[in-house]
């Protein structure tokens, strides 16, 4: 909530400064804002709905994969679930903490959190729309590889 107030007041102040300095430029910037809203609105609405569906249908089933450590398969499937799901950090970390307490390995918890935050299969349409297909695919594939490496290293280090 604090963030929301901060961002809105910051932008409001900047807008006023901009308006005092140059009316035409300010008008132009608002036009740009309205245009880009029109362009990305469908992608954002789709993403929001997908998040709702994924979260409710799958969040309570994650524990099943942590329950019995079935080696490489369990590790990879947890990473895949992390990539597909999208969850606010405020929910994800307590959840991950509870898995750790219940006996999940450090690697699988790290893999879950890293893929969860870094990779967005649900946000992919938006990423493609704004930054291009090639970029989006590269970034997500590499992030997945990195998440696995970080997770394995953490298992070794901790």
């Amino acid at each position: 909530m604090k963030n929301i107030i901060f961002i809105n007041s910051l932008v409001f102040i900047l807008l006023i400064i901009s308006f005092i300095k140059d009316k035409e430029k300010t008008k132009k910037s608002i036009m740009i804002a309205v245009k880009s809203l029109g362009k990305i609105a469908p992608a954002i609405l789709s993403v929001i709905m997908l998040i709702g569906i994924m979260y409710v249908l799958f969040a309570d089933k994650i524990a099943l994969f942590f329950g019995h450590e079935n080696g490489v398969w369990g590790f990879v499937s947890i990473s895949l679930i992390g990539s597909i799901l999208h969850m606010p950090a405020l929910l994800a970390f307590p959840l991950a903490g509870s898995f750790l307490k219940e006996g999940a390995s450090i690697s699988s918890v790290a893999a879950f959190i890293t893929t969860l935050t870094m990779i967005g299969v649900v946000t992919l349409p938006l990423e493609i729309k704004t930054l291009g297909k090639k970029f989006a695919i590269y970034r997500n594939v590499f992030s997945f590889a990195i998440a696995l490496i970080i997770a394995l290293l953490m298992g070794v280090l901790l």
């Binding site: 932008v11 900047l14 807008l15 300010t26 910037s29 608002i30 804002a33 809203l37 409710v56």
Partner: peptide, 30 residues
């Protein structure tokens, strides 16, 4: 629950997104 989760995200978005778009507009002009 699905509707509520999606709607919560939507609210979160709606409260910051207009400001962010204007920020982008200002950024590209200035």
């Amino acid at each position: 629950l699905i509707m509520k989760t999606s709607f919560d995200y939507f609210k979160q978005m709606a409260m910051v997104f207009p400001a962010i778009l204007i920020l982008m507009g200002l950024f590209s002009v200035w």
